[in-house]
């Protein structure tokens, strides 16, 4: 446990103080600000009409038209930017040979994998918090149902955790940061497509399974403000799966 936290803290600090992280955070802020403003403007235009129908409906559509679109943009941006943040977790250690230090220290490969995952998750959460400023700030000028927003954010947090775990695994496969980014983006896209592929399939079990592993499906539940146990179970096990794969890769390096 001590080793996990030690590694997590070290890597988190190295990531968030790196110029790359600042660049990514700035990029995200620019994209999200522009998009969020345009969603708000669209909403305001529709709002003129909605005014005639009373306040409740307006609050509902703030959630639907602005927050839901915002979350989709956040998700899309994270698919492509998180890999740039998780890439260095292991690939860089391998390249700089500091990996030798980890492997000859009295800690297990599980400590390394979990510690590094937590560092990646921490950095990803920092980005999510930035994106949270927008809807939170909107509460100054409009009323909405906070619990729904919280569920929405819990959902995107789970998805982000999955991207971080996939990025960590990609990073463990290579000592080239570029390759790690590329693989992580591919993994993230696969995470989306693998669930979509079974939709409407004739094979019954495949259709059911793919519905369960479809991230899009889980996300749309979150967007409706519903939180299912099956979602939590799914994301936790998917994250665990990637962290486990990463641990296997670290372990296998000793046997080559």
């Amino acid at each position: 446990m001590r080793a996990i936290l030690l590694i997590a803290r070290k890597d988190f600090k190295l990531i968030v103080t790196s110029p790359l992280f600042c660049f990514v955070a700035a990029l995200c802020t620019v994209v999200w600000s522009l998009m969020y403003l345009s969603f708000l403007r669209q909403f305001a235009a529709q709002g003129l009409m909605a005014n005639m129908q009373g306040g409740g409906a307006a609050a509902q559509s703030l959630m639907n038209s602005v927050f839901v679109q915002h979350i989709s943009v956040v998700n899309l941006v994270l698919i492509f930017t998180l890999p740039a943040i998780t890439m260095r977790l292991i690939a860089e250690e391998k390249k700089m040979r500091s990996y030798d230090l980890l492997l000859t220290s009295p800690i297990s490969s599980t400590d390394i994998a979990v510690g590094k995952f937590l560092a990646g998750l921490g950095a990803a959460t920092a980005l999510l918090l930035i994106s949270f400023i927008y809807p939170a700030g909107t509460s100054l000028i409009a009323k909405f149902h906070w619990p729904t927003l919280i569920i929405l954010y819990f959902g995107i947090f789970l998805i982000t955790a999955l991207y971080a775990a996939a990025g960590l695994f990609a990073s463990s496969l290579t000592d080239s940061a570029m390759l790690a980014v590329f693989m992580a983006v591919v993994f993230n896209l696969m995470i989306w497509f693998v669930g979509q592929s079974g939709a409407g399939s004739d094979v019954k079990w495949w259709a059911t399974l793919s519905e369960y592993i479809s991230v899009g499906n889980h996300l749309s539940n979150f967007l409706k403000g519903t939180l299912r146990v099956s979602s939590i179970v799914f994301f936790t096990s998917a994250v665990g799966f990637f962290v486990f794969l990463c641990q296997r890769v670290i372990e296998s390096a000793r046997w080559r």
Binding site: M96, T104, S105
Partner: peptide, 26 residues
């Protein structure tokens, strides 16, 4: 252990790094 290529974190300060290693070694 001092490997052939010293295992260092370039973006860490010397004392922070040594502290990290000491804790890592238990």
């Amino acid at each position: 252990y001092l490997p052939e290529t010293p295992p260092l974190y370039g973006d860490m300060v010397v004392t922070d790094f040594l502290e990290f290693v000491a804790k890592l070694k238990g």
